[in-house]
Amino acid sequence: MAVERPKGKKSVPEGVWTECKKCGQTVYNKELEKNFKICPTCGYYFRLSAQERVNFLLDEGSFKESDIDMKSNDPLSFHDTRKYVERLEDARKKTNLFDAIITGEGTIGKHSVSMGVMDFRFMGGSMGSVVGEKITRAIEKAIEKKTVVIIVSTSGGARMQEGMFSLMQMAKTSAALSRLSNMKLPFISILTDPTTAGVSASFAMLGDVIISEPKALIGFAGPRVIEQTIGQKLPEGFQSAEFLLEHGIVDLIVERKELKSTLIKFLNFFKNKV
């Protein structure tokens, strides 16, 4: 339920209210959580942290996280206007994660799954060695235990600060999926806002089923890069999930509230094959 921000009380305690980025309405956090972090007024999808997504999708208490503290060792000793290690440290403080993904095993509607969930707050969900390695391990675990792989993506692409180590994670994760595919084990890819570049151009687009959340921005090149290249503004809705559905690139769009029940239907469909 949307509420009016109390007048004259500008210093509302943090963590109680959130302002919708789209319609500007102030919403109680509790209300927002109950509504799967969708604005009750305008239907705007707030981005979810990886942990929130895990909570929404997996059976309660079923998730066992792997490689919790795997972190980048800054192979290029990279620094631009700031040091990469400092950026990593900031992201760690902000998210309480060591990198932009959580992986592990759990159940959805009692079906075992090997799960990966990305977190956009951690350096734009960018994929460096850690994200690539954790995804690859999650896929290898699924091969070992003969389970389904589900990855929820949100990412700006490969992480520049690890240079070619990052780019090669695209090949590494895709090769792992090729093995999964040979074992006839399913991979369900869920695309959320935004999924672009090195992530969309590798594992995220390789699902046996590719599901997107409504209105998510999905593409190869970011809109700004395209606009600069072609020298004109992009049409409204370009690279939205709906645009991709229309062009036959994603299989279906599923509302956040329906995502878990839809996944269970797919898992039922795949059941005896796993």
């Binding site: 060792n73 060695s129 850690v130 390695e133 180590f165």
Partner: peptide
């Protein structure tokens, strides 16, 4: 390909 390090398996 990839360079990572792991510790004791704990949260930050």
């Amino acid at each position: 390909i990839g360079q990572v390090k792991t510790g004791k398996g704990k949260r930050p």
